[in-house]
């Protein structure tokens, strides 16, 4: 009896580790074929490239942890990338009209909070599924942003924003330090506070949380606001990365965010969406994109590879659930 109980998880753990093994295998393959891949310079590039995705993944992880990881009925926020683009759009447009950075930042913050609150209300009060809500909000927010920016590219050269990309503190880029700080704060809030544990309980089992007197709907609302805030911060990193706001960034960001977060779930030992998993997923996805680029693989193939990776990883994840 005991032996059976121990043997079961072990088999599923082996199957469960395959996604990570596949990923590492792909990276090893890349580094063997692209000699310049494993250099400090290049790894820094990978990290810098992944920063916007890491940020939105932190937000998405919060929403999924609060709402449960069933994609259709549980928690998901597809509107975060749109919020990020809105944050970038408002800031860029106002900067180009010579407002101070502070007032730009405040205006963008307000707009992003409105998005988060609307998401929260639609999900907890109206009872729409998060998937439907945030998909529709994605469209609406992108539409509003296109009105604000008139769908054109706006250059930004404000030194503070460029600093996110250029400045280094003790040879580590400022952007990486800031995002690392945000991830650590997020991790602390999620795993070392009462709020975070209750949030996870809400997503893990709604009934269990409610029986323990946890206000599930309030926590779900919080998670959408947190997600909007990560989108808000991400907006500035988008501005820094692209030296301005340009239309159309949101689609790719959304796909990478979903890919990275659910890859992260397949990596995590508890097999659920976690903050570390999402961050790791985001970095690995960026590493693979850059890796294939430095190998000289046609850029059109990367989408195919990413799509296949989701299939492989999610399929293994599903199989390991069954083995259990």
């Amino acid at each position: 009896m005991q032996a059976d109980v121990r043997g079961g998880p072990r088999l599923s753990e082996i199957v469960g580790f395959l996604p990570l093994v596949i990923f590492v295998g792909v990276l090893v393959y890349i580094s063997l074929n692209a000699p310049n891949f494993v250099t400090v310079r290049n790894l820094e590039l990978v990290l810098m490239q992944s920063l916007p995705v890491v940020l939105v993944c932190v937000g998405l992880a919060a929403v999924v942890m609060a709402g449960g990881d069933d994609v259709v009925s549980g928690g998901i926020d597809l509107s975060i990338p749109a919020t990020a683009v809105l944050s970038a759009g408002i800031t860029a447009q106002m900067l180009s009209l010579d407002y101070s950075l502070l007032s730009c930042a405040l205006a963008a913050l307000l707009a992003c909070l409105v998005v988060g609150v609307i998401n929260a209300l639609l999900v907890t009060r109206v009872g729409m599924t998060p998937l439907l809500t945030t998909l529709a909000m994605f469209v609406a927010v992108v539409g509003v942003n296109n009105v604000i920016t008139s769908s054109r590219r706006i250059n930004v050269d404000h030194p503070w924003i460029i600093a996110l990309r250029g400045t280094e503190i003790g040879s580590i880029p400022l952007g990486i330090i800031l995002v690392a700080a945000i991830v650590i704060i997020g991790y602390f809030a999620m795993h070392h506070t009462r709020w975070g544990l209750n949030l996870q309980a809400a997503g893990g089992s709604k009934d269990a949380a409610e029986i323990s007197g946890i206000g599930v709907n309030l926590l779900i609302s919080h998670s959408f606001v947190v997600a909007a805030l990560t989108g808000y911060v991400c907006g500035f990193f988008l501005l820094a990365r692209g030296s301005g706001s340009s239309p159309g960034v949101q689609d790719n960001l959304m796909l990478e965010m979903v890919l990275a977060t659910f890859l992260g779930a397949a990596f995590s030992p508890r097999r659920v969406v976690t903050m570390w998993g999402a961050v790791l997923g985001a970095v690995l996805v960026a590493a693979i994109s850059i890796g294939f680029k430095s190998m000289g693989v046609n850029v059109f193939w990367t989408g195919l590879i990413k799509g296949s990776l989701i299939v492989v990883v999610v399929a293994f994840s599903a199989i390991s659930q069954r083995v259990r």
Partner: peptide
């Protein structure tokens, strides 16, 4: 695979 993730993958792959 859940329909959402499955058809999202199809979307990725098909676009590519």
């Amino acid at each position: 695979i859940s329909p959402f993730l499955a058809t999202l993958s199809t979307f990725f792959i098909g676009s590519s």
